[in-house]
Design a protein around this nucleic acid. Structure first.
Lengths: 135, 135
DNA sequence: CTTGCTGCAAAATCTTTGCACCATA
DNA sequence: TATGGTGCAAAGATTTTGCAGCAAG
């Protein structure tokens, strides 16, 4: 078994601020967006630090990452279990969703083609009620 | 319904060369990889043209795109129907797979949360037989 | 001939990294 | 006070774009 990546041994003002932004966001955010939010809140953190922190946190599994249009988007999720998201294309709001059957299906398809240690990515993109009524 | 994006009105040596590389590839390739292959084949095409052509082709639906680790990977697929892929993390070989039930599930989950015009991305990543036996 | 496509180079993004300094534990 | 974390600036990587010239139809 692989060893779980460790969390940093020190708690800093910057990390707290970044986690705070992620905690109050119900959407996936890019490093740049988080950085802007921090600046707006007068809690400046260097962009490089935002990137480093997000990488560390996602490596340790504390953040979920999705790649959209060439950039990484991060979100702190409630569930630690494997799950997926229903994301609004307009505003980015996202809902955590589950699909237990998918695991079984994925494993079956994989072994049928001789693939091992299979993993999967699944995200749903749509327009949320608020955004579709807005226009 | 939306109008299907059009294919370019002119057929050029460059486009043919790019489609040829994609046609002989059973894996998802990045723009850079396609460019390298073209150079290796002495069919040089400017990198910018490769990017432009790939964008045009994927916009018109002739190419499937997936984002992996921050870069776009393209593949010309056999089926025009909506489908997914089982991709090898090591060598990139991919197999086209289907999951009809997913559409139904996605639509249900979406409407349950008030989302409209939902779309989804699903890709399986694993290690193919050749790669897992190789090492 | 027309004008869409290409090549080239510059630039825009997103992300990473080297290094000196700061601050947590 | 030791050393992990941070800030800053520079560098890397991927992708886009402006513009002049080429070439398909």
């Amino acid at each position: 078994m692989g060893v779980e990546p460790q969390r940093s041994p020190r708690t800093t003002r910057q990390q707290v601020a970044i986690l705070d932004v992620l905690g109050s966001a119900k959407k996936f955010c890019s490093a740049q967006q988080i950085h802007s939010t921090l600046v707006r809140r007068h809690q400046d953190v260097a962009l490089a630090t935002v990137y480093r922190t997000l990488k560390t946190l996602s490596d340790s599994g504390e953040l979920d990452v999705i790649f959209s249009e060439g950039e990484a988007l991060y979100r702190r999720c409630k569930s630690i279990e494997h799950h997926h998201h229903l994301v609004c294309r307009e505003c980015g709001v996202s809902v955590e969703i589950e699909n237990p059957d998918l695991e079984t299906w994925a494993a079956a398809v994989a072994s049928a083609h001789g693939f091992e240690s299979v993993d999967h990515t699944l995200e749903l993109y749509g327009t949320c009620r608020r955004c579709s009524s807005g226009k």
